[in-house]
Design a protein around this nucleic acid. Structure first.
Lengths: 196, 196
DNA sequence: TTTTTACCATACGCTGGCGTATTGACAAAG
DNA sequence: CTTTGTCAATACGCCAGCGTATGGTAAAAA
């Protein structure tokens, strides 16, 4: 079932439950248990799909662009892009993706979620680290920068949800994003310390 | 009841439930409903207490130190301090505080939690913003920096929990923290752009 | 000593979700 | 036409948590 995805995005992990979902689809749970073994099975399917999409998307991005700095900027614009939770654009696209992300992250303590989330974070931090390595940073420095970038991303997402009134809107947000990128990605005018 | 606090820290918001808590205390829920009106009442009490402590702690810190840069560094060392989730030191102190924080943040969608969390974030970002203003940054720049710092904090906490193996340990962590502070707090050698 | 107050236990009903038969409809294959 | 396989509905039992009612006990107050 595809509706589990949106349920997760809207109501968190506890919303991806069999009876509510069945109601939502106008069927009864009797039929549900034909498609899935368990609630666990449904959850796992949803999560694994998310993992797949997350990693694949990032990989395709890295194939197309060669300059690592450009990759970072692109990634930043995509992930911090255009007021994540406003969700006006396309009604479901970027909005739902971030909401899903938040739901997963909120359920990090769940035994089914933990390993998936762990792998996705590994993948992302690994990717970031690689970019910084290509920019000539030491292994340690690259790791540090990758972690900080990821943390800033995760935190910003939450900020949007939990205290949206603090985050600048409209063109103010564009400036904010520029600030983020300029402090996190060396090249615009900051950083460029250390490595070659 | 004081035990709700630790339950929240350990098992998240769903663990602060009346029957499990009563069992844990060796009493029955019959007695519980003498002390509290509701489950909501218990939750509210726990959250309001957390809010109070959070804000008071930060205020007292600002009274003691005059140099805003020093305040930021101190705050950073306290909040990013000494491998947050290792929790060996003092068994319950810093560990439990951060675990509670994560639990609240995970339950941000809860109608009871949302306003409290919102206020706490407001307070913290406001405090950070003030520090940066005192350092001479423009209102906009100060806000941007405050948001980034808070986001980095929230994200780092989650990284510790969700992918602890990626975060350097021991003295490696000290270097990481130094990296954080040097990129986020101007003065060591970075930043110092814009505002007079 | 009676009586009130503070605290706790027992027991009940309610809700909502999970999982399991069991049965039915309906279409494709035999 | 019958058989088989796919998908759905009904109905049941189970569990866990919430909230309520009621009764008990022991100490303090009267």
């Amino acid at each position: 079932m595809e509706a589990a995805r949106s349920a997760m995005a809207e109501g968190g992990i506890e919303a991806v439950a069999v009876e509510p979902l069945a109601r939502r689809l106008g069927v009864t749970k009797g039929s549900f248990y034909w498609h899935f073994e368990d609630r666990k099975a449904l959850l796992n399917a949803t999560l694994e799909r998310w993992e797949k999409e997350s990693t694949e998307a990032r990989i395709s991005a890295s194939r197309r662009i060669f300059d690592p700095r450009e990759r970072l900027v692109r990634l930043g614009e995509e992930v911090f892009g255009d007021a994540p939770l406003d969700g006006e654009a396309s009604g479901q696209g970027i909005f739902s993706r971030h909401a899903f992300e938040l739901a997963v992250s909120d359920a990090a303590e769940d035994p089914l979620v933990r390993p998936v989330l762990r792998r996705v974070i590994e993948h992302r931090v690994g990717y970031l680290e690689e970019c910084y390595r290509e920019l000539g940073f030491s292994l340690e420095e690259a790791r540090h920068r990758a972690l900080l970038v990821y943390a800033a991303h995760a935190g910003t997402l939450r900020l949007f949800r939990d205290a949206p009134h603090l985050v600048p809107r409209g063109e103010g947000y564009t400036y904010y994003r520029r600030h983020l990128l300029s402090t996190l990605v060396p090249g615009d005018r900051a950083g460029d310390a250390e490595g070659t």
